[in-house]
Write a protein that binds this DNA or RNA. Structure first.
Lengths: 338, 338
DNA sequence: TTGTATGCGTTATCAG
DNA sequence: CTGATAACGCATACAA
């Protein structure tokens, strides 16, 4: 490995001069500087990250932590983060799994963005106590060194429930996420608030886990209990799609007998038929905002918690009860109901 | 930041004793060792990654480089890599974009797995020359420090073309990937070989770019030129799905007028209707094999290039010409043709 | 068994 | 403008 020492030797100068030249300091003659640069290039010199990080006490790297790599939500999110990080001189690395948690306390990264169930909140608070800067996307955590950028889960779930109710549905199933999920808990809170205001809406909970398979399970139960048109609010799209998929091989029609609404607007949602009604938000913006907040936090600037707004997007998986009945005799005006 | 120096001071021993104790060396009394460990825990000591990396000249981190984060192929691939890396004491980080290339030469990572168009082959060869260990998944590169783990593109494309021909199709469109793509080039080679053996099959190329939108473009052209049933081999699933999507809003039926086959078997492929016929392979295995090869390479063990085998998976997007015509009068036996 | 001393490759503070 | 030199936090050969 070629180090500044090698360059110094070859150039006949001291290592500090080399360091200055390499870092573009104006404390060195243009002449010697260009000579040094030339030699550096000739020798294929590349600075050693570990040494620089050790000395400067910062790595200029931001880490994102994901529960797993398999989610469909992450693409745009990461793209947004990377864009912001890169323009601010930071590199972004993506990590997953308990093993990788050490990157933060060991100071391999300067800050972390968390969307990762495998991080306990106590663990995060501990790191924050030791001065590490963190942005959380999947929980509420109050600490000087922690900033939250959260989805407006409550608004989304409210929109979804109200939409089903407005279509005339009076019986609604809600398929939840896994127990520990912050998003699931938040969305359920909103569901309860809405239903409390609507006494003549009958609703029941089916426990899911945000995976497609639990949507299928839910479908089985709903098929068994079916008597008349019902609404189903799946707390994420994956489950909604699993549910629609199972329903496709049954007698019941989505958007006619079973009115399905999801959450997240993942890409797949626009490829199921009829198109899934779901709660949409900009994943890209979520990512870039998270990165911006983290960078401010690391720079010592004051930051306030942020919220990502959501809206309902249409499809044929939910139809109005009143309008629908006559339509069936005319033909199938699937999709593009909105 | 608490360092071994702080621990040494508090324990009344030298830093080397602390270092030994922390690293579980048996060169130190159980008594002092446990005392040191206790103090370390009390002080929330965490080793500094940069210092360790600098000293040991290895980071125990493997980097994967992706062209972008948005692909649907990556989930299982990364999961496979992570599993192997973690069991071997390595951490895995995912990087994307030119900025992050530096991680390799700057020795932030011990080795790299490449699935990234933004890496020029010359760049990789240069790094390999300087002793960096690399596994490439997206090109052929011969070097002592580079190992290839490639898809059997040729077999896959051959299977796909032969399948279309066997169904009685005599006119076949092939929608390619972008110009620089290794996979696209390899698949096209196989296409040419097959068609050379089949003189009475008429075939034509449509240039695509592996994105859904180019599948839609291809669909437009095919619709315009349509006279009788044709086969379409899209060199990846994304384009095939874009194509099917566009076709859905036309008069032409997939699996009847237009017989579509893709490549990759991404998750979406099983959600389009009719299910896409495509070339399948284990992304998980691809990832784990790549990681295994890299770890061997880093350990100085001899490794040979590896190949990931592929197979055709069924769906309703391609049907037999002879069998099909009578079936139409009976009803729609969509999907599950295989 | 423990301590001393050195160096990994940088940056940065001083003198000159 | 340039050169010694001292850290950064850790691992380890060698001494005691």
């Amino acid at each position: 490995m070629v180090s500044i020492k090698d360059i110094a030797k070859k150039a006949g100068v001291s290592i500090s001069t080399v360091s200055y030249a390499l870092n573009g300091s104006n404390k060195v003659t243009d002449e010697t500087s260009s000579k040094i640069l030339a030699i550096a290039k000739e020798l294929n010199y590349v600075p050693n990250a570990a040494a620089r990080t050790l000395k400067k006490r910062e790595s200029k790297i931001v880490g994102v932590f994901l529960t797993d790599f398999s989610g469909d939500v992450y693409g745009d999110l990461l793209t947004g983060m990377k864009a912001v990080c890169n323009t601010q001189g930071y590199d972004l690395i993506v990590c997953s799994g308990r093993q990788s948690h050490r990157m933060l306390p060991e100071r391999m990264i300067d800050g972390a963005i968390i969307l990762d169930q495998t991080f306990a909140s106590e663990e995060l608070l501990q790191y924050a106590d030791r001065g590490h800067k963190i942005v959380v996307l999947d929980r509420e955590l109050d600490h000087m060194n922690i900033n939250q950028v959260l989805l407006d889960n409550k608004a989304g779930a409210t929109l979804a429930m109200e939409h089903l109710i407005e279509q005339g549905l009076t019986k609604i199933y809600v398929v939840t996420g896994p127990e520990g999920s912050f998003d699931s808990v938040q969305r359920m809170k909103a569901v309860r608030q809405v239903t409390e205001r609507e006494p003549n809406v009958e609703w029941m909970v089916i426990t899911g886990d945000f995976e497609k398979s639990s949507g299928e399970m839910a479908a089985n139960q709903i098929i068994q209990e079916y008597t008349s048109p019902v609404g189903v609010f799946c707390l994420n799209d994956e489950m909604a799609i699993g549910l629609c998929n199972r329903l496709a091989s049954s007698e019941l029609q989505v958007g006619q007998d079973i009115h399905v609404i999801g959450f997240d607007n993942i890409e797949l949602s626009s490829y199921v038929s009829p198109r899934l009604v779901t709660v949409d938000y900009s994943k890209r913006k979520w990512g870039s905002l998270a990165a911006e907040q983290l960078i401010k936090l690391m720079a010592g600037e004051p930051v306030e918690h942020e919220r990502i707004y959501v809206k309902l997007v249409g499809g044929g998986s939910v139809r109005n009860q009143a309008e629908y009945t006559p339509v069936i005799t005319v033909g199938d005006n699937s999709a593009a109901y909105y």
